[in-house]
Write a protein that binds this DNA or RNA. Structure first.
Lengths: 222, 222
DNA sequence: AACAATAATGAAAAATTATTCATTTTTTAA
DNA sequence: TTAAAAAATGAATAATTTTTCATTATTGTT
């Protein structure tokens, strides 16, 4: 997991980072809002821990700014203040949760997991390349384009996206996408892949679905 | 909104209830876990506020018990204790959030709204009668039955369920479900309603979709 | 390079879904 | 009670999707 820690108190930030590394995660520390805004442009974090009180820009302002710009990454505010109005403000600013200092690392992890669980279950789109598969509308969305998918094309693409980067065999696709045992006499899997490729790859010179001869297919989002 | 308050301190419970009524909601107070378990069998609440410390059963035990039994209603724990381990425990017990005493009613409302917002966006099925519309699989599920719906039938049923109890006109359906302006020459809305009715109401003597002559249709989940 | 196995493709057939149409039934109001 | 409006229905047609099929292209192996 990639964690961004936006915190100017070295002691707290350093302790958090050490704990994250021990737990097998990555953590990057920045000490002000400007730095935070610039790093989220380059790196996609899984969660952002944001100090309420910070130089130049408060955590709240930063939170509003990032969420306002369409950032989907969950943000957890760290606050030393226990006044009620702040909690309300935090949620209204688009924060996904907040933790009051002092806190244990155990609590931080529990909060992060709770927030991520929420996100997981409420995911409504799967991004890939310059596209995104809208799971509600069942269409592929790009910059101002909408590609309609048939039912089987949608099921197939969703399966590819949930298994991106790993080989999926034709048998697997028959079972998981078509819910039937694979019959080597038929080739509807190949046909549907052909049609999906046509819809996704026309105009682009990208190849999302790579064939592994004799084994299956791999989906590359790149 | 229907709120269940499980709290043995009369002062707090009474004040909460008064505030909810002022805000235009309904609130029911029970003072122990047994009573809570029995009322949730009969009434479907929108949110449950649960005191941490209670006679017979702690709020935590009750929370675990209710969520373990498959209750989907969001639960917010009220706790006077500020020890860190409790917060973690609360989330692990399946609570959706917690509020530490003392709290303002403003905070309670903000928390409830945040929790409901989460639920709204992560809802994956819309229940009605003895059925449930699975928004992921796009099928109607009942006890061991699965009814496949065509795309238009699904869109129509989802729209009805999201507007249950209120009249929806044919014009409205054209615009919202078919995304086209209504043309009085055509009657595909009626035809699709007929087909949906056939799929839902065969075998049952229930009527989910009621016609309001000259106005439109109402969906009753009962 | 040649062969066999595997995959891709275009087009046709089959199946499903969406819409139209003509007719019957129901509802409301005179 | 009856006439007009609105809705329901069965069946036909149109459009789309799914699957099959025959053929061509590609890949890996000898």
């Amino acid at each position: 997991m990639e964690v961004l820690i936006v915190e100017d108190e070295c002691a707290i930030a350093g302790s958090l980072k050490k704990n994250f590394l021990n737990a097998g995660h990555h953590a990057i520390i920045v000490t002000d809002g400007e730095a935070a805004l610039s790093t989220i442009k380059n790196i996609q974090y899984d969660v952002i821990l944001l100090d309420w009180k910070m130089p130049k820009m408060t955590g709240l302002q930063l939170c509003k700014k990032m969420k306002g710009a369409g950032l989907k990454t969950p943000i957890i505010l760290l606050t030393a203040l226990s006044e009620i109005s702040n909690k309300v403000e935090a949620l209204n600013a688009g924060a996904d949760d907040y933790i009051t200092k002092p806190f244990s690392f155990e609590e931080v992890l529990a909060r992060i997991n709770a927030v991520l669980r929420r996100y997981q279950s409420s995911v409504s789109a799967l991004p890939f390349g310059d596209y995104s598969l809208d799971l509600i509308e069942r269409t592929v969305i790009s910059t101002e384009d909408k590609i309609r998918l048939s039912e089987k094309e949608f099921d197939l693409l969703r399966y590819f996206l949930l298994n991106r980067g790993s080989i999926v065999s034709k048998e697997q696709l028959c079972e998981k996408v078509w819910n039937i045992a694979c019959n080597p006499e038929t080739n509807f899997v190949e046909v549907t892949i052909k049609n999906l490729r046509k819809k996704l790859e026309t105009g682009l010179n990208k190849k999302f679905i790579r064939t592994i001869y004799g084994e299956g297919y791999i989906f590359f989002a790149d």
